[in-house]
Structure formats: C-alpha cells, structure tokens
Amino acid sequence: MKSISVFCGSSEGNDAKIISEAYKLGQTFAKRNITLVYGAAKIGIMGKVAEGAIDDGGDVIGVIPVFLKTKEIVHKELTELIITQNMHDRKILMYEKSNGFIIIPGGFGTMDEFFEITTWGQLGLHTKPIGILNINGYYDALIAQCKLMVERGFLKQENLDAVVIDQTIEGLLEQMSNYKPLPAPKWLNKEGL
C-alpha cells in the first residue's frame, strides 16, 4: 500500500495513549513510505497523525472543504493541500488518492467516514482494505454493535469480516497488506448496476 487515508477526530480527546498512538501511526507511515491522506488539519488527533509523518520525513496529503478551511487550522507543512467544494467531494478525493483506509478515534465525522467507506465496500464500489485501529479499546462498543447487527440479521458476517481490526499499528498494517477483498455482490451485473 502506497497511500492510506486516516479518518479521525479534529479534537484530541482526553486519552494520552490515543494521542501518542496517533503520532506513532504517522511515524510508521513515514518509515514505510506510505503517503498519509487525511483531513488537512493541524489540530486534534488529525494533527498528531500528520505531525508524526511530517517529523519523520513522510509525504502527507491534506484534503479539506473550503468552508472548513476558515474554521479549522490547516497544516502548513503538507506535501500537498487539496481544497474541495464540500464534504462529499472531500471523501471522494480521499478515496481516489488511497489504497486503503484506517479509522482511529474520533467523533461523528469519523463515524460518517467509516460507515460510508464500509458501505461502498459492501456494495462492491471498491475493494480496498478498511482497518480499525482499536486504541485502548476505543472501538470496543462499535465492534460489539456490529456483532449485534450480524446476530440480528441486519449485517452479513462476511461484510463485518471485511473490516480488519487490531489494537496495534503493526498488526493492523500486516492484516491490511494481506487483505483479500470480498467478491462483488451477486446482485450487481458486470457494469456495477
């Protein structure tokens, strides 16, 4: 994988382990020559991942909608800054520039990005790996909810299994490197319609 989008919070939260692991994730990308694609902010967990990559000489692409550019603090040391018209265009560009996706702690925006990209995968719109870095058990409740959705018949086990989960950066990247995509949904024809 040459580039990975990281979806995460524009706030730092209050867990020192999450903050330090976000920075370490950026460093790991730089050491492995993986380009970080993210939301372009210098603040929050987003900023920590970018700092880690930049401090170790990595490439960082920031993608931000024009209306957030005035509200968030855009990182000034990015390899490339892309400004979009809206949030939807931001997600599409992040998707296009990435070979995979990692979700680390964040709020509603992170959940939106996670569920949209996993839904795209479920629908056969992409075959890129999606990983959850479950730092300090942050996503335990989300994972339990997803298992409940399988148990109650609202989600197929194969779709849940398509999301790789690990508590360590190295373990997650290893799983993502060995990812085998789901076959295209049977209800799609050759043209994806």
Rank of each mutant, 00 (worst) to 15 (best):
153 G>I: 10
15 D>E: 07
57 G>E: 11
8 C>K: 05
183 P>K: 15
66 V>G: 05
43 I>M: 13
142 L>Y: 06
169 I>E: 04
150 V>E: 10
157 Q>M: 11
169 I>V: 13
57 G>W: 11
189 N>Q: 08
10 S>F: 01
140 D>M: 09
123 L>I: 11
42 K>S: 12
168 T>Q: 07
192 G>L: 05
100 G>S: 07
50 A>E: 05
164 V>C: 03
6 V>W: 02
158 E>A: 15
93 L>I: 08
54 I>C: 02
165 I>G: 01
185 P>L: 05
49 V>D: 01
151 E>A: 12
80 E>T: 13
14 N>M: 12
131 G>S: 05
16 A>Q: 15
55 D>F: 11
154 F>S: 03
175 Q>N: 15
28 T>C: 10
64 I>G: 00
165 I>Q: 01
62 G>T: 04
37 V>D: 01
14 N>H: 14
170 E>L: 15
98 S>P: 12
89 D>A: 03
92 I>K: 00
117 I>P: 08
71 K>L: 15
26 G>N: 04
134 N>H: 09
56 D>P: 08
101 F>L: 00
126 H>K: 04
108 F>N: 11
113 E>S: 00
127 T>I: 07
43 I>D: 09
108 F>S: 12
101 F>Y: 11
116 E>A: 01
181 P>E: 03
73 I>H: 12
148 L>K: 15
156 K>G: 09
107 G>W: 04
12 E>S: 14
150 V>P: 10
75 H>P: 00
164 V>M: 02
164 V>D: 02
158 E>C: 13
13 G>L: 03
6 V>E: 01
42 K>I: 08
166 D>K: 05
75 H>I: 05
177 S>K: 14
93 L>P: 04
61 I>T: 10
142 L>P: 10
49 V>E: 01
108 F>K: 14
101 F>Q: 00
29 F>C: 08
191 E>K: 14
20 S>E: 14
185 P>K: 05
